[in-house]
């Protein structure tokens, strides 16, 4: 496991042949010598296996240190993907958020064999829960909380739907939390492995939760979609759970996809099948524990046959 590697050896690998990260859907080779990056990577990807570097990688990235004269030699980090730098550099201290955002961009712009939803995805007993949402609705916090209570993490950022076969595929990487949710989650799951907090990023303060070893070990196992939860976090709100009819669910899910229009008819069919085969609910919550219990119960109910009219 990556956690067992001495940090000096991890730094050496990152400077030379690179570190291979098998996330399930994709395998990433990462190189970089930005201070602090190796330690953060090891903390968050510690449960991932040490892979041979001489295997096929879907994505090869490098985090390069940059110094720009106009910034009076303030160090910057550049995300380099297969030799190109698709983004502006960020302050070097934001190395890990840049790495994670960069990988998100790679997936969203390349993995068009699949329907890609902007959604958290977890599973239990092989049954998948999709949590599609726009930013600020508590998707990542709920995803992390479910994972901390025994669900398997498939992804915090992407609902990856395999076309035709109708399965959710894992893309196991750290869960990204922002601002107040960092402390909320730390209180909720003190045993969880949380990486360093990166202050003042373009999304505010950001910290990442390491995937559980169980999630990493099952990163090649798809899940059957069973439940779609549209979350809405409101501070102090009482829990409310309302069914969402399939037509509205279609609108919300298709509107949430990164590549719906690109995939055309295949996406239409995939979304239709998703909303027909899953129970769909809107879950408004103010307390994580209540939301987790609600999702737990909804998933248990989802495996029962649908009654007429439901």
């Amino acid at each position: 496991m990556i956690a067992e590697l001495p940090v000096a050896e991890l730094r050496r690998r990152l400077r030379n042949e690179g570190l291979s990260l098998d996330c399930g859907l994709i395998r990433v080779r990462v190189r970089g010598d930005v201070p602090g990056f190796a330690e953060a990577l090891q903390r968050l990807y510690g449960a991932f296996p040490l892979e041979c570097a001489n295997v096929f990688h879907d994505v090869t990235v490098r985090l390069e240190r940059k110094r720009r004269w106009r910034d009076r030699l303030r160090p910057y980090v550049q995300f380099v993907l297969d030799g190109d730098a698709p983004f502006d550099a960020l302050p070097a201290a934001h190395h890990l958020p840049m790495f994670e955002w960069g990988i998100n961009w790679c997936v969203a712009s390349r993995c068009h064999r699949y329907l890609l939803l902007h959604a958290g995805t977890v599973a239990r007993d092989g049954l998948g829960v999709l949590i599609p949402a726009v930013p600020g609705t508590g998707k990542s916090t709920l995803t992390a909380a479910l994972t901390a209570r025994g669900f398997r993490l498939l992804s915090d950022e992407f609902g990856v739907v395999r076309l035709r076969v109708h399965r959710l595929l894992p893309l196991v990487r750290p869960v990204s939390l922002k601002n107040e949710s960092i402390a909320v989650f730390a209180r909720f799951a003190p045993e969880a492995v949380i990486g360093p907090t990166f202050h003042g990023t373009r999304k505010g303060d950001v910290a990442h939760v390491a995937p559980t070893p169980q999630s990493v070990a099952a990163r090649a196992e798809p899940a059957v979609p069973a439940l779609i939860v549209f979350p809405q976090f409101r501070k102090g709100a009482r829990l409310s759970v309302e069914p969402v009819d399939a037509g509205l669910a279609f609108v919300k899910v298709s509107g949430n996809a990164f590549n719906y229009e690109l995939l055309g008819e295949r996406a239409f069919e995939a979304v239709a099948r998703l909303v027909q085969s899953c129970r769909c609910y809107r879950v408004c919550y103010g307390e994580l524990e209540e939301a987790v219990a609600a999702v737990d119960e909804l998933l248990a109910r989802a495996v029962q046959p649908l009654a007429v009219g439901q």
Binding site: D245, A246, G247, F250, S254, G264, E265, F268, A272, Q276
Partner: peptide, 22 residues
């Protein structure tokens, strides 16, 4: 043309424009 009925909604995919219509 692809048609799916979901509860009370009818959703149609236009194979020429690749647009989805309710």
């Amino acid at each position: 043309v692809r048609i799916v009925r979901l509860d009370d909604a009818v959703i149609v995919f236009n194979p020429l424009s690749w647009q989805t219509h309710f």
